[in-house]
Design a protein around this nucleic acid. Structure first.
Lengths: 278, 278
DNA sequence: TTGACAATTGACTCAGTAGTCATTAGTATA
DNA sequence: TATACTAATGACTACTGAGTCAATTGTCAA
């Protein structure tokens, strides 16, 4: 509902400004113009709020970037990749501030695990990028390259929020592409080898199962209003348990829902699911 | 005294484990096996403790790295630079954990300013490195290169503490040198230009004056025991107000004190002072 | 208009924090 | 041993912030 959204927005702003731990529930409710009690009608605890806000954005982020990596033409793929990331950070700078400097606020064990899982999903996306864009041109240094790409992304994202500096986004992305190309083409001593890469991502996280995705869609449908998106989602759900539609139709349905904030994640999961099935 | 050192060490451990804000004075005193009152005999406040711990390490870090940049042969300079940094992080991994991910703990305005000043001093050291190692080979991309070097340093430092992964330090440094060389030699689109670099470091921080250094030495002398280091420091102080000694003698005295933890910073300040005078 | 129900409030509890200070323990000197 | 002094203690104060819940306000069908 509306109240929940309001709280999330205002909270995010305070989180980015002062840090998560330093922001009290009282401050959030004051900023929203509601009472403390009202807050606990929308969220069970402050922890749940934090988790919901971050989870929400991370899912949107991964979904968006993964879409770009899978669907843009190969020629400009790396450029488009950097551009989408930096645009996302720019548009959601409050989130980015918290996300990029994974600051040390207290978070529960379960959320740490969740974050690690997301990190792994994003790693996969970056690997896909490297495979599509560089193909056979990189081999041994593939893992090191992926690590560097994420490093560049974070390093130059700092420019937006640590300091407010006028950035020419086009030039920035071109520069990142140039740097990445250099490292891809000439690295002879990779640090992150395949072995080390595996060590880093200990618990190999599973793909979501068909049933899990169905459940998620079911939950989502209940909160949605009548729309093209909702109808598309219903069709997608039916086709999951009883496949009939052609790839083209499926793709169209996925396209329909991918801009809907709440559907982004489902769209991402489905795309991963179908890619895996093939 | 001993007690103060004990508190600083135990506190740093807890800070790295749980975060600074999440660590209470009670926890620290419990870990030290002393009472809460005893803590306040050594430090005026928790803030003072935090400040002292971080300040102490940052000074040691900058002093060490700056020494390497100024005194090692040019051939292996970049390699030695990365090696010293990563060794320092490795030896003081608790400090590094806090330092590299500049986490969002509450700190006073004055300390933020202090941190920015230190950042600037370190920037200077990196510029010196670039100048000495690459000389005229880099020009336009000098500032971008320095930014990347610091990025590489932080990115790969993560390997030590985010995850505990066996790292071949020699190979790692060679790899970083290779990457840096690539970017130095072939970058045509620098992001961080001279202009942007200046924007980033708004308040140009001054060198310490002769008098300030004298005062610092005076304070230090009172806490030191009789030793070669103390005698050297006395001689250096006399020579500051009344220069007599030859460069060779001065250099020898500076060498004498540079390994003493408490003198490192003074040694750094004096070296910067003399370099500036020339 | 009434009464039943839902939404909202904010004073309150409770746990945990930084910092204080009267009291005690320990030590060195005469 | 008596005395003077310092070092150390931990119960205490004052305060903050998360979460609760009895009381109040708002809504709407009858």
């Amino acid at each position: 509902m509306m109240k929940k959204q309001l709280i999330m927005e205002q909270a995010l702003e305070l989180f980015a400004e002062q840090g998560i731990d330093a922001t009290s529930v009282q401050q959030i409710t004051d900023k929203c113009g509601i009472s403390k009690g009202a807050f606990y009608l929308s969220f069970k605890s402050k922890d749940e709020l934090i988790l919901t806000v971050l989870d929400d954005f991370i899912k949107r982020f991964i979904s968006d970037i993964d879409y770009v990596v899978n669907n843009r033409e190969k020629e400009n793929l790396l450029y488009e990749f950097y551009l989408s990331i930096l645009n996302f950070f720019n548009e959601h700078s409050n989130f980015a501030k918290i996300f990029v400097k994974q600051q040390n606020f207290y978070i529960s064990k379960e959320f740490i695990i969740k974050l690690e899982e997301y990190q792994q999903l994003f790693d996969r996306t970056v690997f896909k990028l490297v495979d599509r864009y560089y193909g056979d041109k990189v081999e041994d240094n593939k893992y090191d390259l992926a690590y560097c790409i994420q490093g560049f992304m974070k390093l130059y994202a700092d420019l937006f929020f640590s300091m407010d500096i006028p950035v020419d986004m086009n030039r920035l992305c071109q520069s990142l592409v140039e740097k990445t190309d250099l490292i891809a083409a000439h690295t002879t001593i990779p640090v992150i080898t395949k072995k080390i890469s595996q060590l880093m991502n200990k618990p190999s996280c599973e793909n979501y199962s068909k049933d899990e995705i169905c459940t998620l869609i079911q939950q989502e449908l209940q909160e949605m209003e009548e729309s093209i998106e909702k109808d598309s989602l219903i069709l997608l759900k039916e086709d999951l348990s009883n496949p009939k539609l052609s790839p083209a139709l499926l793709n169209g349905l996925l396209e329909n829902i991918r801009h809907h904030p709440q559907c982004k994640w489902i769209s991402y999961l489905l795309r991963s699911y179908y890619a895996f099935e093939k």
